[in-house]
């Protein structure tokens, strides 16, 4: 079953996008000039089946994060269609959606509800989330008092224990100590073993090899290669070796 499908997707950013004031709109209105645009993705097509573990590789600015944001339903493509079926948990940035003045417990509830879980479901999973994170008594302290590693562990713990159908991660597993990384890897393997789908962006070839069976290589918003993880990584490394 196809869970994620990209059909000729293009994502175009206007160069001026970002903070704008009324005067910018007025100026544009008078000049009627076409704003300069930038194609973050151009005509990208692929499909991901249920149970696949896919890595997206490429250099900075290749369109990896844009691809994830489209999958997660955070932004819409200017051309083409993106269809995703199933519940998605996206870990794009550590502790996004966490508020530093709230306690760990309050943040778990808030985050779980934003990810689409009912009160009952959340309360049912809360012990497992706290246990997995290894936060201990700190769970009742504001996360302002946490170390970066603790915030990361809590964020990961919420996302994985909420048992989504699709887990999207952006270069997050390189944080945290070795012991916790080991625990995460084990948990992700159990997750994908259960027929769930994972898509992640990573710059770490070792991580990609152990976690993913497929890789999509993006460069300047286009797909260069899409295939077995080891093959794509080899080609990617070759290209790098030549230019270096």
């Amino acid at each position: 079953m196809t869970v994620i499908q990209f059909n000729n997707v293009s994502k175009i950013y206007q160069r001026h996008s970002g903070q704008r004031l009324l005067r910018d709109h007025i100026r544009e209105w008078f000049r009627r000039s076409e704003a300069q645009s930038f194609h973050a993705l151009e005509d990208v097509s692929f499909r991901i089946e249920a149970g696949e573990r896919v890595a997206i590789v490429g250099q900075n600015g290749a369109g990896k994060s844009t691809t994830l944001s489209l999958m997660a339903g955070l932004s819409w493509p200017e051309r083409g269609t993106v269809s995703v079926s199933g519940r998605v948990a996206a870990l794009l940035e550590l502790g996004s959606g966490f508020h530093h003045d709230l306690t760990g417990m309050e943040n778990i509830k808030l985050n779980a509800s934003l990810l689409g879980f009912s009160r009952k479901q959340t309360l049912g999973m809360i012990d497992e989330i706290i246990d997995f994170s290894g936060i201990g008594d700190f769970i009742h302290a504001p996360i302002r008092t946490y170390s970066t590693g603790m915030v990361m562990r809590l964020a990961f713990s919420v996302a994985i224990n909420l048992n989504p159908d699709i887990l999207i991660t952006d270069e997050i597993l390189t944080v945290g100590d070795a012991a916790f990384q080991e625990k995460c890897l084990g948990r992700i393997q159990r997750f994908t073993g259960a027929g769930k789908t994972m898509v992640s962006v990573s710059h770490n070839p070792g991580m990609v090899k152990t976690l993913c069976d497929r890789a999509i290589w993006l460069d300047h918003g286009r797909v260069v290669q899409d295939g077995k993880a080891s093959d794509v990584l080899e080609a990617y490394a070759d290209r790098f070796a030549v230019s270096a």
Binding site: G73, V84, S85, R87, H99, D101, L102, E106, K109, L110, S113, L114, L115, G116, F117, S118, R119, T122
Partner: peptide, 22 residues
């Protein structure tokens, strides 16, 4: 986007968040 969450639970949590932070 298919978000099939619990609107009441989210709004409750967000309102509580504002209140607590303030």
């Amino acid at each position: 986007m298919s978000w099939k969450g619990d609107y009441v639970f989210v709004i409750r949590n967000l309102v509580l968040k504002d209140f607590r932070i303030r």
